[in-house]
């Protein structure tokens, strides 16, 4: 389906993907009693933070991520992601990792799990990183 005015957009695939992500987070919430904050789970798996789910549970989740993405990529075919240069990826990675710890969460924890619960902290964090992201892309476009 094509969204009028936005030829690049994939609204139906986006919605379907979002529903799957929601199911993943709902399973974690109702099954394990936890929010699905990827930064927190990754930090737990690599021994950077001590709180949260068990170390082995964190690892099974982290292993699932590339597994699920690879399955869809294989079935769908024609995956051709476009990346910024490696040095920029490295700088961005440090900012994302440090920021996620300092701000107690990332796009999944705040943006999906917190926003859907109307957590004030998550609403503020999500609005903040959206604005910062928009400003960053705008500045990069000018440079």
């Amino acid at each position: 389906m094509i969204l009028p005015g936005f030829p690049e957009a994939a609204p139906l695939a986006g919605l379907a993907g979002g529903l799957l992500i929601g199911l993943a987070a709902a399973l974690m919430l109702l099954g394990a009693g936890r929010v699905t904050g990827v930064s927190g789970i990754v930090g737990r798996a690599f021994g950077i933070n001590d709180s949260g789910m068990s170390w082995s549970s964190a690892w099974t989740f982290v292993i699932g991520l590339p597994l699920g993405a690879f399955l869809v990529a294989t079935l769908k075919g024609g995956f051709d992601p476009e990346f910024v240069p490696l040095p920029l990826l490295a700088v961005a990675g440090v900012l994302v990792g440090f920021g996620a710890r300092l701000g107690s969460g990332c796009t999944s924890g705040h943006g999906v799990c917190g926003v859907s619960r109307l957590s004030q902290r998550s609403l503020v964090a999500t609005a903040t990183f959206m604005i910062a992201g928009i400003a960053t892309v705008a500045v990069m476009g000018v440079l």
């Binding site: 990346f83 990675g93 900012l95 994302v96 920021g99 701000g103 604005i131 960053t136």
Partner: peptide
């Protein structure tokens, strides 16, 4: 800390177009 962390996170997110979930998924 919440606002500062989310700001740094957002800058990195905008620079790379990646956050932790997609980073590990790819």
């Amino acid at each position: 800390q919440l606002v500062g962390g989310a700001t740094l996170f957002g800058v990195g997110w905008g620079l790379a177009g990646l956050c932790p979930g997609p980073g590990f998924a790819i």
